[in-house]
Amino acid sequence: MLEIKNLHARVDGNEILEGISLTVKAGEIHAVMGPNGSGKSTLAKILSGHPSYEVADGQILFEKNNLLEMDAEERSLSGIFMGFQYPVEVPGVNNAEFLRMAFNARRVRDGEEEIDPLDFDELLSEKMKMLKMENKYKERNLNDGFSGGEKKKNEILQMAILKPKLAILDETDSGLDIDALRTVAEGVNSLRNEKNALILITHYQRLLDYIKPDFVHVLHKGKIVKSGDKALAIELESQGYDWVTTEN
């Protein structure tokens, strides 16, 4: 589904990613871990198409298409979803209306008719129930005045509505208390199937107790320095990143 080959990227002239290669197949969950400043969020931003990040070298293929030639809108419409580390507040844009616009954008692109507002409301209610979100979040403006945890839940709500083929969740666990973490994880797990894939970017192992990765990669100074299975995350939790980074 996703092939990253020898990716080098810069921000403001500084090289942040120094040759990343990663292959993600349908049905897989990959966890990308690493200390602060290792390039995790940069990788997420590049995958989502942020204009401030410059790809200096390498290639990214999504379903055999050149991802780097697609803008953020096209990436989203082709099935990539980015769950932001810091979801942006957009005052004045109603949460439910925005979700419907996003949902319809995809339907229009797939040559389908826009959804009936009442049908959408039903769909939204169902997904909100799954995430234990109160109905008031329909009426509120997009992330406006939401707590950190509410914003993260709202990201997963968007994911649930948009049903991406590939979701990249950038530190979705940060800002969540234990109950919210469990709810969010259950929500993410319920969206899994053999046709979609997930990249979890996280500092901590605790999210991985709930969403079990097939692969764990450790990023350090812009490179993947170690890959393994779930056991690697547990090892990291007990030994710290120094264990891996000093080796490299």
């Binding site: 809108e73 932001f84 942006v88 957009v90 004045g92 925005f98 996003a102 948009l162």
Partner: peptide, 19 residues
Amino acid sequence: YLQTRGLSAKAAKELLTRS
């Protein structure tokens, strides 16, 4: 942010202007 949810640059700008 809005573009990452599938809105075109133009539609996102209009939405933000309205908001």
